[in-house]
Nucleic acid binder design. Structure first.
Ligand SMILES: [Zn+2]
Ligand SMILES: [Zn+2]
Ligand SMILES: [Zn+2]
Ligand SMILES: [Zn+2]
Lengths: 161, 161
DNA sequence: TCTTGTTTTGTTATAGTATAACGGAACATT
DNA sequence: AATGTTCCGTTATACTATAACAAAACAAGA
């Protein structure tokens, strides 16, 4: 499973990650009586197939190849749906999307993004999230949504250098 | 001064904030032997005049009015310069820019953005920043830059409701 | 099955954000 | 004045995202 424990592990069997993510998505949608349509399923799979966050326009050609309409609204609608269900996250600094490894449970993730190889992993950030929420609260600000994104150098790229 | 202490204070004399920010910018550039050209100075002033984060294309008309060229590269160059010097920050979730109230000292800020009135304030987030840095480090990830952005409801808008 | 209301998708157009590339002007230094 | 550097003007274009409306697919009751 593509979880925090194997963050930045390059040698794992990623097809396993993908399959599990797709299974979870299917059961999650079923449980919520939502339709994981072919387009949505394909978009989710494409996002998962990349360890790098994927831009919306990088997804379009694959949709076309699969015989679907491939105009921007198609992919953005699918991404909107997947985001609403917590199946993918959007990384604002990159205008790109990445699959969430634990879409079922409420969680607060931060993204560690490598400047060199462009991989990104979602790490738990509950503690930081709580801290920020408290500090904001002290200023009278009610937190509804947080985005924590970190640029830097991943262990693999450090080793290479 | 438009600092954390008066975050979300609507009734302060903002012209004071602006003047102080401009003074600081001038001395900071002088100290660094950099040129705070008329365009850069105007862009910084425009950003400061708004309590809401300002999009690049919202700045262009004012540049035109002031007699400058007003094509996108003009404002993006100025914003790039101001960002590099820490005089403004970019808020990724909004594609918008906001003046930094303490550009001289190294600091880690997070942005509290109100969904209702669109104001944003920069609050100190050193503690959260350190926490995240440590957690990333534990995964072998070297942090170079962090972005913490918080959406929610500011005290003024809560009072109104 | 037929009807009807709802959700999803196709399609076209357009809005919004950001950068590439190159020439010319302004500036600083000698 | 000559020279190298930085900054700006200008045009074009890339990239990201949404509006609007029609057609199709689906779900559920009559
Ligand atoms: Zn997640
Ligand atoms: Zn890397
Ligand atoms: Zn700042
Ligand atoms: Zn507000």
């Amino acid at each position: 499973m593509c979880a925090d424990t194997i963050a930045f592990e390059t040698h794992h069997d990623h097809s396993q990650c993908i399959e599990q993510a797709m299974d979870e998505a299917r059961s999650l949608c079923k449980a919520r009586s939502l339709r994981l349509t072919p387009i949505r399923e394909l978009v989710l799979k494409l996002v998962w197939q990349s360890h790098k966050p994927l831009g919306a326009y990088e997804i379009l050609p694959a949709l076309a190849e699969a015989g679907f309409n491939s105009a921007p609204p198609t992919v953005y609608r699918a991404l909107d749906f997947l985001q609403e269900q917590g199946l993918v996250h959007r990384i604002a600094m990159l205008n790109a999307f990445i699959g969430c490894p634990h879409p079922d449970d409420a969680h607060h993730g931060c993204f560690l993004i490598c400047r060199h190889c462009n991989t990104a992993v979602e790490a738990d950030s509950s503690a930081a999230e709580a801290l920020i929420r408290e500090q904001a609260s002290a200023l009278g600000f009610t937190t509804e949504q947080q985005s924590i994104e970190v640029l830097g150098c991943c262990p693999n790229c450090q080793e290479r250098a």
